[in-house]
Each structure stands twice: as C-alpha cells, then as structure tokens.
C-alpha cells in the first residue's frame, strides 16, 4: 500500500514549462485516470513521479520519502511503469521479457528464484499470455505485445503501477480485459495511475480522474464531475453525449465546439 504525493511540482524542458504547480495526492486502492489533450503534460507527470525527469520545483514523495533520495532499485520495487509504446530492442521470448519485471527484486548475481518464477507465471496467466510464453516478443501482433508488456510491468508486483496509454493498439475486447485487470489491481489495494486518451474507458473504469491542460490540473474528482460539459468544451473543445447504463457512466465525444 503506497501513497504518492506531488507538492508544487514544476517541470521544465529547456525554457518550456511542461508542468506547473502540480499538487496531487494518490491514495492506495484507487484507479486514477490522468486525462487531457495532447501536450497537456500527462506523460511528463508520470515520468516526474518516477524520477525519470527532474522536477525544477516542488517534490514528489512516496509514503513520505522523497523519490529523488530513493535508490533507483528501491523506487523500482515500489512503482512499476509501463511507458507509452514500450520499445523492445532485442528479440526476447515472452517469458524472458516478462521476467525483466523481476529485476528490481534480484540481488546482484542472484538467479530468478521460485518466488520470481511464480510471479511471472501468475501475471502471464492474468494477462492471457501464457500460451505465448515461448514466442519471440517482437513478432507478436500489436495487441498481444501490449498485453505482454503489461505483464512485464505487473511482474514487479509493486504496490503502485503507472501505465501510459495501455489501450492504444488494443481491440475492444482486449481494452475491456486490460481496464478490468487494472481495476482489479486497484481493488486488491494497489495504486494504479493510468494515462488515457479514451474518455469512455476513463469514465467507465476509473475511480478518480485528473484532468490536465497546459501543464496544470484543471479537474480532479469523480469521473462524472470531471467530465462535465463545460470542462470538455474548455479543455478538449468538444461536445459529448453522456449517459449511464445502471451505475456505469458512459461518454461519447460528438463534435468539435470550437
């Protein structure tokens, strides 16, 4: 169980300010969707939380500990990360690739142990890639590859998981599978932060949405509140149809309004 806190976080790249004054607290057991138009700073926020990009002001803490002071391995054990369009440079087998998720747990020169192997098997089963275990990961279809990469991130068994755009190359069936899996992780007590473009998925699955625009938080709360007509018009410049099936909120972008 971990809590991640951003206090007054600014990120600058060159002279350009990408994030400005971000104050957010992420509690365990929640599936948080980070949404916003292209260039809003969603991926930068994810990278700042992971200490992959230095913050120019403010701080990010995990359970009160400044992430900049944690060792890279310690941070990796606490937060697992799946970047957008995860690259893979060598033709590794699916099992070997998923096994990379165990690296933060391995002592120097130690081997993959039974507990590691059990974790690898479990996440491959959860993501439905067990049958692909001996296939070369670079030769998989986009959807298969996306699930394998998610399995790799899950294999770390970190208490927090940050996933950047996991639905990009998935068909509707697999999109439902992935979002259900992430929601299940949150139910089990993990903090799951997912960067999304798909507002329908964000509205349906996330417990909380953080709406970014121009590097600032412009909305934070329940999906139905954050995805208001005014916010959609102001941030995305769209109108949308909104409704519910039972308790499930639905949203469908309709037209440009500016």
């Amino acid at each position: 169980m971990v809590t991640i806190t951003c206090r007054g976080v600014d990120v600058e790249l060159g002279r350009q300010r990408i994030l400005a004054g971000i104050d957010l607290e992420f509690a365990p057991g929640t599936l948080v969707g980070v949404i916003g138009p292209n260039g809003a700073g969603k991926s930068t926020l994810a990278r700042a939380i992971l200490n992959l990009i230095p913050v120019s002001a403010g701080s990010v803490t995990i359970d009160g500990a400044d992430i900049a002071r944690l060792s890279p391995a310690e941070l990796a054990r606490r937060i697992a990360y799946l970047p957008q369009g995860q690259e893979l440079h060598w033709p590794l087998s699916v099992e070997r690739l998923v096994g990379l998720g165990r690296l933060p747990h391995l002592a120097p020169f130690s081997r993959i142990g039974e507990a590691d192997q059990a974790a690898i098997e479990a996440v491959m089963a959860q993501t439905g890639v067990l049958a692909l275990r001996d296939r070369i990961a670079n030769e998989l279809s986009g959807g298969e590859r996306a699930r394998v990469m998610l399995a790799r991130a899950l294999a770390t068994e970190a208490a927090a998981l940050i996933v950047d755009e996991p639905l990009a190359s998935l068909d509707p069936g697999h999109q439902i599978d992935v979002m259900t899996l992430l929601a299940g992780r949150a139910r089990a007590g993990a903090l799951v932060i997912v960067v999304l473009h798909d507002l329908a998925a964000a509205a349906r699955y996330c417990d909380r949405l953080v709406l970014l625009d121009g590097g600032s938080v412009v909305g934070d709360g329940q999906p139905a509140d954050v995805l208001s007509e005014d916010a959609l018009a102001a941030v995305y410049g769209i109108t949308a149809w909104r409704g519910e099936i039972g308790a499930m909120p639905l949203i469908m972008p309709l037209n440009r309004c500016r």
Partner: peptide, 9 residues
C-alpha cells in the same frame, strides 16, 4: 532492452 526509461524504471 526496454530503452532508457524502461531500464531506469
């Protein structure tokens, strides 16, 4: 193998 961000994470 997972790129620089992947490796650091």
């Amino acid at each position: 193998s997972l790129g620089e961000d992947g490796a650091r994470s």
